[in-house]
C-alpha cells in the first residue's frame, strides 16, 4: 500500500494546439489540449505536463487560457513548463490552476529561481526539468552526461549529476529528466542516466525521452529506478492508451493506479 509508480503524459502546446516533434524538430499540430487532457484523465493517466513551446507574449496569454480550461476540465494534477522564468510567471500558471511548475533553461541561467520558487510556493511545486546529453567523460563532466538548454541546442558545461544535486539543495521538489539522445525515438528510456540520477537525489525522478512501448516504462521504474515515466508520441498517435500501458505494467508486477471508471 505504498506509493504507486506514475504514468505521466506530456503535451507540447504551440499557439493553443497540442504539437509533437522528433528530437525537438519538425513539429506537427495534433489538436485541442483540453480534449487531449480529458481523454487521458478518463484513461487513468496519473498526471499531465503541458509545455508552452512558444515564447511570444501573445501566445503566452493563449497558453494561460489553455491552462485555465484544462484546470476546469480534469480531475488529476498537472504541471506547466516552458517560459517559466520568474516568480511572476510561476504565480500566473499556479493561479491558473496548475499544481506544479517546471523550470529548465531559466533555472540554469538563474539557479536562485529554484529557492525563491520553493520559498514562495513550496518545494512540492517546483520541478526541475533537465535536458541531458551523453558526452565523453571529462573532469568537468565526470558523469558523462551534460546539461543542455534551449531545447537541446546549447551545451552548458554542467554535469547532470552535479546540477540535479545542487537543484535539490536549492529547493527543487522533483526532477523531470529528459534524455535528448532518446527523445522522440521511442526505443526506450536512457536507463543508465535515469538510475544515476534517481540514486543521487532524495526527490522523485520522472524518466522522459524514449518511451515507445509499455515495457519501456516498466524498465524506467525498475532498472532506471524512476518514480514516474513520461510518455508522449506513444499515446498521442493512438498506438497505446494509458489504460493499456498500465495494464501491461501491472502484468509486469509494477504497482500502478487502475482507474475503475471514467
Amino acid at each position: 500500500m505504498a506509493l504507486l509508480k506514475r504514468v505521466i503524459v506530456c503535451l507540447d502546446v504551440r499557439r493553443g494546439q497540442v504539437t509533437k516533434g522528433v528530437k525537438f524538430q519538425g513539429n506537427v499540430d495534433l489538436g485541442d489540449p483540453v480534449e487531449y487532457a480529458i481523454r487521458y484523465d478518463e484513461q487513468g493517466v496519473d498526471e499531465l505536463v503541458f509545455y508552452d513551446i512558444t515564447a511570444s507574449a501573445e501566445d503566452r496569454n493563449l497558453f494561460l487560457d489553455v491552462v485555465e480550461n484544462v484546470a476546469a476540465s480534469i480531475r488529476i494534477p498537472f504541471s506547466v513548463g516552458g517560459g517559466i522564468d520568474s516568480l511572476d510567471s510561476m504565480r500566473s500558471v499556479l493561479l491558473a490552476g496548475a499544481e506544479k511548475v517546471s523550470l529548465n533553461s531559466p533555472a540554469v541561467r538563474n539557479p536562485d529561481l529554484l529557492g525563491k520558487g520553493a520559498a514562495a510556493f513550496g518545494a512540492q511545486c517546483i520541478v526541475l526539468g533537465v535536458d541531458a546529453k551523453k558526452v565523453d567523460k571529462t573532469d568537468a563532466i565526470p558523469s558523462g552526461y551534460e546539461v543542455v538548454i534551449q531545447g537541446g541546442r546549447t551545451p552548458t558545461g554542467l554535469d547532470v549529476l552535479q546540477w540535479v544535486t545542487e537543484a535539490e539543495e536549492r529547493g527543487a521538489g522533483e526532477i523531470c529528466l529528459n534524455a535528448i539522445d532518446t527523445d522522440g525515438v521511442r526505443d526506450g528510456y536512457e536507463l543508465t542516466l535515469t538510475r544515476m540520477v534517481a540514486d543521487a537525489v532524495g526527490i522523485p525522478v520522472i524518466a522522459s525521452g524514449g518511451g515507445g512501448e509499455p515495457s519501456h516504462l516498466t524498465d524506467a521504474v525498475t532498472t532506471g529506478g524512476a518514480d514516474a515515466a513520461l510518455v508522449a508520441s506513444m499515446v498521442h498517435y493512438g498506438d497505446y492508451t494509458v489504460e493499456q500501458i498500465k495494464a501491461e505494467m501491472a502484468a509486469d508486477g509494477i504497482a500502478v493506479r487502475v482507474s475503475a471508471q471514467p
Binding site: M1, A2, L3, L4, G173, E174, I203, P204, D227
Partner: peptide, 15 residues
C-alpha cells in the same frame, strides 16, 4: 530507506 522520497508525491492507496 533512500528509495522512499520526500516530498511524498503521487498516488498512494488509502485504507
Amino acid at each position: 530507506d533512500p528509495t522512499l522520497k520526500v516530498p511524498h508525491m503521487g498516488w498512494n492507496p488509502v485504507r
